[in-house]
């Protein structure tokens, strides 16, 4: 019934694995730091989908329960069906998981060393800048007019100043869109 979702070549599956494994190892501070690079690779380099569709899949991953890294599952699914979904997810999760496993014990051992706090203090601003860059680039893609730009900013403000659950705000965005207001 939905053949495009189950179609996929071995070349695409291999490319998905390679792409997500690479991104997984440079995604210090979480997946949002590599979002612009992911968008560039998926949309411009591999031409797997349009920019609008990439953003829609990202929004879907945000609206679903679970970690927002599941955007990898969705992109894999879109490109090469179930095999693509599993490959992309495993490639994004595998290398960091092995690294975490290897370093977990050492970290406990070094817990009181001053260099550890210094490394952390140095990495925080880099992560902050990278996530901000991802936010700016993503907002520029989704802000197609004054109304959608205003919606993005209003939701940012509500999240920072109130304790409203993000899911309600996403639902509100979807409803406003459906009503043709943004």
């Amino acid at each position: 019934m939905t053949p495009p979702w189950l179609a996929g070549s071995w070349a695409d599956i291999g490319a998905l694995g390679g792409l997500f494994a690479q991104l997984s190892l440079i995604s210090v501070g979480g997946v949002n730091t590599v979002l612009p690079e992911l968008q560039r690779q998926v949309v411009q380099v591999h031409r797997w989908m349009s920019g609008a569709e990439f953003v829609a899949l990202y929004a879907l991953a945000q609206a679903a329960p679970g970690p927002n890294m599941l955007v990898s599952t969705l992109i894999g699914w879109r490109v090469a069906g179930l095999a693509g979904a599993l490959t992309a997810t495993a490639a994004l999760v595998g290398p960091p998981a092995l690294l975490s496993y290897a370093t977990g014990h050492a970290w406990q051992y070094f817990r009181d060393r001053p260099w550890r706090r210094r490394v952390q203090a140095g990495l925080t601003p880099v992560t902050a800048g990278l996530v901000m860059a991802a936010a700016v680039l993503l907002s520029m893609t989704t802000a197609t007019g004054p109304a959608s730009a205003a919606l993005t900013l209003a939701i940012t403000a509500l999240l920072l100043t109130t304790r409203i659950h993000p899911l309600w705000l996403l639902a509100a965005g979807g409803l406003l869109g459906m009503a043709g207001l943004v």
């Binding site: 929004a59 879907l60 996530v131 993503l138 919606l151 965005g173």
Partner: peptide, 19 residues
Amino acid sequence: RAFHGLAAAASGLVLATAL
């Protein structure tokens, strides 16, 4: 259209996380 609104809202989520 719903996804258009959802995506704009998701941008707000990332922007708030960044801040």
